[in-house]
Design a protein around this nucleic acid. Structure first.
Lengths: 219, 219
DNA sequence: GTCTATACTCAGATAGAC
DNA sequence: GTCTATCTGAGTATAGAC
């Protein structure tokens, strides 16, 4: 979900007590929800007393906010400039480009920590404004802008509404990634959903993009 | 999300204390999450004491389960048999049929109670298995089966994979309905999202379905 | 920065009178 | 089926010794 093209995995490794608290909190929050986890639960797993936690975080809410910031930072670290995207787009044909983008999105999504933060975001989205804004902006709107830019570069002027084109491409992906993360908890058929995502990419390319091709444009 | 075609609104009206408890719980759970709401919060709003609540529900979890059952019952009440769908499909052209289906899905989604239960389902999905199964089965898989059946009826044998066709139609709708419900909390631009959903319907019809048309089939 | 000890509040749930 | 009263445990957070 971060490295559409470059595919890098940028997530800081944490080691101190503060970072252990974050790590344990991510684990517990993702399974039990923020309000289903107590400071005692966290400190017990970290191996410290409740009072010690307050040397690192002034409140439970601050822990949650730190977790959200990790997600945002991971995202921003792998963002490419328009110039960098342009170069990649020129180097690659559209179908493999889209496949790689999805594969990167997926691989990021499967990173244990980010996967858990995604669950926390989903869990708290209707209670915490920041959570829902992260999902909407970083997992829905930004990817749409990204693909809109890519389609614009590739298709030139053969279709006016690149945003619509991008939304049609990305929204099924978003829904299936969500489905995937739910299936994971249920020990469901993961490979089936993954297959469906790539079916979508091929279907989209064959049924929508090829119709937009104009004679002198190489998809 | 229930009455794809018939458009009926079937939701029982409740009046007794038990039903008041449900009503208040839906309100509170949807805003604060299950673990963010106490029995005291609920009984205070209902106007009874904590102990009285336990004459109606043996535990807090049982309240949540009742809420989920309301959602399932509302859903099942508006389900049509394959025969009924066949009749509707024959009576209506495909584009208006799809538009009506989306409008019904939307109108159900905007029913205050069901909208709140949807939020509760989203909130608790990673903690409560029943919640995530309801979302996956009733809001993703069933609609896909429904549209697959419709496309099969309309397109006959012009495209083999109706499930794929149906998924491509419904998954963007699911994502946008989700987006819509989030926008509602943020006081966001609702009409814009609604517009986008119908843009999707038209785009889908014009770019995907018309290509499947075979000479003697009336879309 | 960790600990012990504790304050204070609130949680879910029950007993028994009316 | 409502109430008062209460139990028991758990919640967040703090004070102060080491």
């Amino acid at each position: 979900m971060f490295s559409y093209i470059c595919g890098e995995q940028v997530l800081a490794k944490y080691m101190g007590t503060k970072e252990k608290i974050i790590e344990v909190s991510i684990e517990l929050f993702s399974n039990n929800g923020y309000n289903g986890v107590s400071i005692r639960d966290i400190t017990k797993l970290v191996g410290i007393r409740e009072s010690s936690l307050y040397k690192h975080f002034k409140s439970k809410e601050e822990i949650l906010d730190n977790i959200f910031e990790i997600f945002i930072q991971s995202y921003n670290q792998t963002n490419l400039t328009e110039e960098e995207i342009q170069v990649k787009v020129k180097q690659t044909d559209l179908l493999p480009f889209l496949r790689i983008a999805i594969e990167n999105f997926f691989r990021d999504m499967e990173t244990p920590i980010l996967e858990k933060i995604f669950r926390i975001l989903m869990n708290e989205q209707f209670r915490v404004e920041k959570a829902r804004n992260i999902i909407i902006n970083y997992l829905m709107h930004y990817p749409v802008s990204f693909y809109a830019f890519v389609f614009q570069e590739k298709l030139k002027d053969s279709f006016p509404d690149y945003i619509l084109l991008a939304r049609e491409f990305h929204y099924p992906v978003f829904a299936m990634v969500y489905e995937y993360s739910v299936a994971k908890i249920n020990n469901g058929q993961l490979s089936e959903i993954k297959k469906q995502i790539f079916e979508h990419v091929d279907f989209y390319f064959n049924n929508i993009l090829v119709n937009r091709q104009i004679p002198n444009i190489q998809l």
